[in-house]
Nucleic acid binder design. Structure first.
Length: 443
RNA sequence: GACCCCAUCGUCUAGUUUGGUCAGGACUCGAGCUUUUCAAGCUCGCAACACCGGUUCAAAUCCGGUUGGGGUCGCCA
């Protein structure tokens, strides 16, 4: 029975890289029918915040990653202290003020990484540094190794130590974490050895980079999972995109459910190279989901966003929203785009900017607009078909080309020169708004 | 700087384990079809094995080096 963990620190929101690490742990655990542990690494009493922890928990839930066990490092300080003291008693560590430091020994270490294979370290490279960056040397002139802090002066455990004690005592079998942790793995291996613990298997995931090739940062796009949620990405789409970063289900498949990915997941197939996060591709993946999603489900997803924009209130018309969603499916990649394109449906008075007006609306169309609105206003059954029929009659009466009037009318009704079919748009808008906007535009 | 990791189209990747069938898919971009505009869809196109050497009948694949990128070097996690 395998056991893996995701160990975020509640000193910030759950970021996209962390979510990807969690996801790979989750997939591995589920594929192996193991146990998934969430460990809150809140040893930094000053920077750890309850609101961050809540945000992390909420994001995990939103992404659909349920855990089986949860631990808080802040509640285990005695445990760390105890093991540190044990090392002091054995002469493998020593006290310095209130802190406890682990004696670093010079040795060669072999790490077998599940993703990268064998990695060799020589701890004699782990030398202490002076403030100017130079290596500390002893009286004989040989480099001095840097001892590892186990317990800090304030009594809290250092990251590496708490991590080792926790992984060992929680019986974590697989440590799957970011590549940035490769360097402290040898130190941790020494601690396992000193404590007499059996080390887990390690797998170091490649990092996710920003589009500029550097570290993922706010500058290169949103980093918090909650930001993506706020922007209106579907959780299943984000998950789908994330699992494609550094892993592939094979057979050129890209759109894949989490369950299906789990059934195909293999840690051996994880890439070694870092991957650049592409907003374009995420948007495309998201669009694939919105396009094929059940209209009612999509409406449920949209309602909170529409409410926030005050486009609808609690008494909104469900069936109308379903209609709107069906009309716009495949026409937007994320919710913001949807909101921009459909605003004219929900607001009372639209604004047509000067450029749009100059491009499409000419004063000599005034009479055609008047005739069209008169004819539409007397329709008993105002829908897509009757609107189109009326429109075509007017056009032929005036000896106009249909396409010559379609665009101006669209602009008059929506304020945009893009959108779905004009008659569907009229239908969605309803007779009153359609007629009103046709008359208003040339006043 | 030291140590460690990595290297296929601009980006995500398949192919590397087991050398030949190999350079494929997707995003982006461009062209066309469709059309009432925009999307979507369909068709087509642009575009890569970082470099140098070695092994071999044969190298994207194995080996060495170079270059480039990334990570780590906190009483942060």
């Amino acid at each position: 029975m395998i056991k893996a963990r995701f160990a975020p620190s509640p000193t910030g929101y759950l970021h996209i890289g962390g979510a990807r690490t969690a996801l790979f742990n989750f997939m591995y655990v589920k594929a192996q029918k193991g146990t998934f542990v969430l460990r809150i690494e809140d040893t930094d009493q000053v920077r750890s915040k309850k609101e961050y922890e809540e945000e992390i928990l909420a994001s995990m839930k939103w992404l659909g990653m349920d855990f089986d066990e949860i631990f808080y490092q802040s509640k285990r300080f005695d445990l760390y202290q105890g093991y540190a003291q044990k090392l002091v008693d054995q002469g493998k560590a020593y006290k310095q003020d209130n802190a406890i430091l682990f004696k670093m020994e010079s040795c060669e270490l072999k790490l077998y990484d599940l993703i990268r294979g064998e990695i060799n370290f020589d701890t004699s490279n782990f030398t202490a540094r002076n403030e100017d960056g130079s290596t500390v040397v002893d009286a004989a002139g040989s480099p001095v190794l840097k001892d590892e802090v186990l317990i800090k002066n304030d009594g809290s455990p250092a990251y590496s130590f708490a991590c080792v004690i926790d992984d060992a005592t929680m019986e974590i079998t697989h440590v799957i974490r970011g590549e940035d942790h490769i360097s402290n793995t040898p130190k941790q291996m020494m601690m396992y050895e000193a404590l007499g613990f059996k080390p887990p298997k390690f797998a170091h995931l490649p990092l996710i980079m920003g589009e500029d090739g550097g570290r993922l940062s706010k500058r290169t796009g949103a980093v918090a999972v909650s930001d993506y949620k706020a922007q209106g990405f579907l959780p299943e789409a984000l998950v789908n995109y994330l699992l494609l970063l550094g892993w592939s289900p094979g057979n050129n498949q890209e759109i894949i459910s989490l369950d299906s990915a789990i059934s195909k997941f293999s840690i051996k197939k994880i890439n070694k190279a870092a991957a650049v996060f592409s907003m374009d591709k995420l948007r495309w993946v998201n669009a694939q989901y919105t396009k094929t999603m059940d209209a009612q489900k999509l409406v449920d997803f949209l309602v909170p966003f529409l409410k926030e924009k005050e486009y609808i209130n609690d008494t909104f018309d469900q069936s109308k929203l379903v209609k709107v969603v069906n009309l716009y499916k495949g026409r937007f990649a994320d919710i913001n785009e949807f909101l921009e394109r459909t605003d004219f449906i929900f607001i009372e008075d639209i604004v047509i900017d000067e450029e749009m007006r100059a491009k499409h609306l000419l004063d000599n169309q005034k009479s055609a607009f008047k005739l069209l609105s008169d004819r539409l206003s007397i329709l008993d059954n105002f829908d897509t078909l009757s609107a189109e029929k009326t429109f075509r009659e007017v056009v032929s009466e005036l000896s106009l080309e249909a396409s010559g009037l379609v665009h101006p009318v669209r602009v008059a009704l929506t304020g945009k020169d893009i959108g779905p079919g004009l008659f569907e748009t009229m239908d969605i808008l309803g007779k009153d708004k359609t007629v009103k906007r046709l008359l208003k535009v040339f006043k």
